[in-house]
Simulated assay, not measured.
Amino acid sequence: MSIEQPIPRHPIAPERIAKHEEVAVVGGIPVSTQSLGGLIDRMLDEAPLRRALEQSAYLVFDCNGQGLSMNATDAAFRANLAQADLIHADGQIIVAASRWAGQPPIADRSSTTDMFIDSLVPAAKAGVSYYLLGGEEKVNAACADRIVEMAPGLTVAGRRNGFWKPEEEDAVIDAINAAAPDVLWVGTGKPREQAFCVRNRDRIKAGWIVTCGGLFNYITGDYPRAPMWMQRNGLEWLHRMGTRPKELAWRYITTNPHALWLIWKHRHG
């Protein structure tokens, strides 16, 4: 695993960093209409530039059925979500809803797992460095090893598991800043990861900060992904519930109907 910090390889003018997003309001949340490929290209262009210029980190959160429900029921989560610079469509239902609700159509689903995997080889070629924060220690370590196998030459600037006490948070931030990654991936689950990012965004030296939930477990294979036909038809949640019923059944049983109701309620934006 490479630990050296790469030199910036993207001599892009600061004005190329977009200031505004075209969004579709889905279930009360403004979601970027940008495609998965466009989002990856933008991340790999902007993140090294922001870090090199020591600009504040660009904060990227995701939106799915669970997020819609939590946004409507959890005031602290809603306040943190509102601080994102960009919210992308992690769930197929969000993409479909942008069309049902007569909003600007979201190009396609940008699941965090696909965003991560599809970016690995381009990131390795461009010298864009990643930091992995979250998951159990064995999962985090295995994920770091696995992605270097998937994308030889990828720079993993650093990594840390997702378990720390409040009094250890300063040390977590110090370790991230010592690595100064282009992209910090935070996978500690909703709502903890959003709260961490908002609380520390002005202290973290990174170009982009992207929340990613259980991403590291999917990379290592601890969590199986749904067949492609289920992903395309918005049924990945059903596969997840079937393969991890004790952890996820109640979540989907309660949040999915609520998310559909919220989409209907906010269908006119």
Rank of each mutant, 00 (worst) to 15 (best):
G242Q: 11
T255E: 09
R232D: 01
Y58N: 09
T243S: 03
D108I: 15
S111P: 07
D114A: 12
A76M: 04
E46F: 14
V26C: 04
V23T: 13
H268D: 14
Y131S: 06
N80I: 00
T243P: 08
T155E: 07
A151G: 14
W229H: 08
S129H: 10
F77D: 00
L49G: 05
L120W: 05
R109N: 12
G207M: 13
F61G: 00
E46H: 07
I209L: 08
G153D: 08
R251P: 06
K19W: 06
A175Y: 06
L68P: 08
S56F: 00
D74K: 01
P48H: 15
N71S: 08
F216R: 04
G102A: 10
A179W: 03
I3F: 02
N217K: 04
H239G: 01
G189Q: 13
N161R: 06
G27N: 09
D74L: 03
E22T: 05
G28N: 14
D114C: 08
N177A: 11
A195G: 08
G38E: 12
D62H: 02
P11L: 02
E169L: 15
R199Q: 10
H20Q: 12
P224R: 15
L68Y: 09
A89I: 12
P30E: 14
A259V: 07
A249T: 05
I3A: 05
G135A: 01
E137T: 13
K246E: 03
D202Q: 02
G67H: 11
T211F: 00
V95D: 11
I106M: 02
M228F: 09
R192L: 02
L238F: 06
V198C: 01
F116V: 04
P152C: 09
R251M: 06
S56D: 04
R16C: 07
A79H: 02
A144C: 03
Y218C: 15
N256L: 12
K205S: 07
A179Y: 15
A123S: 05
G153R: 04
F116S: 05
E21H: 05
L36N: 01
E4A: 06
Q34V: 15
C212P: 12
R192H: 15
D90N: 15
A226R: 04
A126Q: 02
C63T: 11
E193I: 00
Y223I: 06
